[in-house]
Design a protein around this nucleic acid. Sequence first.
DNA 1: TTATTTTTATATCATTCGTAACAGAAAAGG
DNA 2: CCTTTTCTGTTACGAATGATATAAAAATAA
Lengths: 202, 202
Amino acid sequence: MATRGRPRNFDRKDALRRAMEVFWTQGFDNASMTDLTRAMQINSPSLYAAFGSKEALFKEAVDLYVRTEGNGIWDQVDTVPTAREAIEHVLRASARAYTRGSESRGCLIVLAAPQMQGANATVCDELKKRRANNVHVLERRLQRAVEEGELSPGTDCRAIATYFATVQHGMSIQARDGASRQTLMSIADCAMATWDKLVQPP
Amino acid sequence: MATRGRPRNFDRKDALRRAMEVFWTQGFDNASMTDLTRAMQINSPSLYAAFGSKEALFKEAVDLYVRTEGNGIWDQVDTVPTAREAIEHVLRASARAYTRGSESRGCLIVLAAPQMQGANATVCDELKKRRANNVHVLERRLQRAVEEGELSPGTDCRAIATYFATVQHGMSIQARDGASRQTLMSIADCAMATWDKLVQPP
DNA sequence: TTATTTTTATATCATTCGTAACAGAAAAGG
DNA sequence: CCTTTTCTGTTACGAATGATATAAAAATAA
């Protein structure tokens, strides 16, 4: 219970945050243990003792990413009054999250393990599931809007959710290519211009 | 001039095509020499003799990709009568190119080297330039449409070009996550639904 | 002091890309 | 026809780096 033995010489949370930054900019495979330990300012045995493995560290880093950087993107989807506002908020919050000062990094969930073959299969799956879940969150929100009368029955909620998720994913690539926050916002605006037409009854 | 020495025992074009497939599904870093030589059915010294290096092989593979798989996407942009048709064609042709039978692979240009740090910097730059060029092609096409009267003056050609490129990039991620051709087509439809609103005078 | 845990440093074992050495195959020149 | 030249194919290797494990030293609580 009480901490016995030699106390840890580094802040676990802080080390994890640094690891997240490395994974965010380098991806899973491209982040070597050397990169990680240097950034975390610890030696590899400390890393293994504290986190278990590179893979486990990555999963914790993804969790942290979602809780911190990704926070403010998805949490308002169900609280905001309309589906339209919810989706617009997701896109604009993404544009904000993907750019930080002059740096544009895009989304860790989208970019950290894009090769579905080779590499670590469980890592790829982990991220893939999270992406799929995001689509589902949007889809459910749209369905709710149908039930509440905001959208007409017969709206293809899945198609619309997939479309907006696609735009969000594309924004990550643009960010990696150096797109500014302003550019990403403009993309969000263009995407939202679809709204009235998309939700029209067919 | 005439070929002297022992003749090559494999078809260079065929080997290159196989290498392209490997790079397409695995990306640059994730494609190991072992993966490549096995797929190409040659030993590594033959690879180095015929292509120079992994990097040079990749660049040739990208060229081949653009000439074959990517063909039919961009070549009609300037010949089709309207900008609207041009862009719709790019999106739909992309949806077709990114899916092949039951396989969905997305775009090599977008997916083969997404980490801009670490890895091979020249490879990343190569792909980044090609992506930027695609945006430019769209932008010029839109500008032409303005000049020809199809679109109203004051249309923000760059923003619209960037937006549609973003959708195309996002489609690659969706494809990697297993999206069917039908799903990608539906995404293209949603994106095109923006058209009338986007090109409205502000 | 003893037990427990972390740190540092080093070892390990696989895999990476790339090369050197040599044998085999064809054309060029006598 | 035989030798020389020039190229390819094969095998094996090398140097570097990857992730992970072990061993001894250090630090703290009981």
